[in-house]
Amino acid sequence: MIFADKLIQLRKKSGWSQEELAQQMHVSRQSVSKWEGAQSVPDLEKMVQLSRLFNVTTDYLLKDEEGEPEPVPGEDRSESVRRVSMEEASAFLEAKKQSAGTVAFATMLCILSPIGLILLGAMSEVPRYGISENVAAGIGMILLLLLIAAAVAMFIISGSRTSAYDFLEKEPFETAYGVTGMVRERKEQFRETYVRNNVIGTCLCVLSVIPLFAGILIDEHNDLLLCGMVCCMLTIISVGTTFFIRGGTVWSSFQQLLQEGDYTPKNKKASGAAGGYWVMIAAIYLACSFLTGRWDLTWIIWVGAAGLYPILLAILRKHAEK
């Protein structure tokens, strides 16, 4: 039996189409077709990759001999690699779609949480409102904590919906026959929505500073007006962020199943190492805000963190390649 026949046999035994095997090997479907048609032979690196993928020895693949595949000593892929069925893949995509709105709204509440504190603090400095500084701080903190608590509850609920699929981020897995094609089709159908959400989110975030500049032009010495404009800016940013998250959450679910983008084995390691980054940023944001009391300024921490995150990921990915 020649290599081409063995490859066809192993691929069909695994339940993969040529396109799905090509995805696993990071080559084109035409390359797999040529291998199976005996028109070309994979190079040594790809041959080793095939032996690992099908859990057979390279000798079995290279030698034109009959016989059953010889498993690689010390490896048992049936135990180490989980296979994702069509039903599991569909359920995962649906769970991520449902959680996208919840996570987006929870993030919006986090961004909006200091607005009450900012406005009440500014109003306490205007005698005609009759609000003392302590009352303003107390009511503002209560509102902030209520919004944060609601957001945390939403994050927990959202996490519980998708907790059964955590293995997609933490463990190696394979997809059953037809899953890759289904996911790619849904991804292409969603592409236009994803691009539109990113465009809207970007435009809103860029335009969010307009209220602040408008307040400065109207009366740069009116602290209450300027604080109101800062609150308008945070509101616009929060709305823009929801577009990013709603589109990004669904898009990332496709990438997880296809093991593309941030979810290739190499990038998953880097993303996992950066997993505590946003927790640390949230802690820094809250600490700085409470210590300084400048909730109208500390939101800049999130902007800086967002700019640094891609750099951190790039460094971690570079390190993962070594």
Rank of each mutant, 00 (worst) to 15 (best):
Q18E: 11
S40W: 00
V199Y: 01
T107K: 02
Y165G: 11
L204T: 03
T235Y: 12
F290Y: 04
N134E: 15
I237E: 07
L143A: 12
K63L: 08
R52L: 05
E68K: 10
N222G: 10
Q98S: 11
G304S: 09
I311T: 14
V84Y: 12
K63Y: 06
A137Y: 10
P127V: 05
T292V: 08
Q39R: 14
T298D: 00
F54E: 03
P114M: 10
M233V: 05
M141T: 15
F190P: 12
G181P: 04
A150C: 11
M123C: 00
M141D: 02
E174C: 02
A314C: 09
F290G: 00
S163K: 15
I315E: 11
S238F: 12
Q256H: 12
S271Q: 14
F105A: 14
L224D: 03
I315M: 13
V84S: 08
Q256M: 15
G101C: 02
E87I: 05
R52H: 07
V27D: 10
K268D: 03
P310R: 07
L258Y: 01
R196W: 03
K187R: 14
T102I: 14
L257T: 09
S113A: 15
S17I: 04
L286W: 05
L144T: 10
G101V: 05
I115L: 13
Y177E: 13
P42W: 06
F190R: 06
L117Y: 09
R52C: 01
K318T: 12
S253I: 08
A270Y: 10
T162M: 06
L62G: 07
A38I: 01
F3D: 07
L44R: 07
V183Q: 04
I2A: 05
T107H: 07
I284H: 07
V41P: 00
W251L: 05
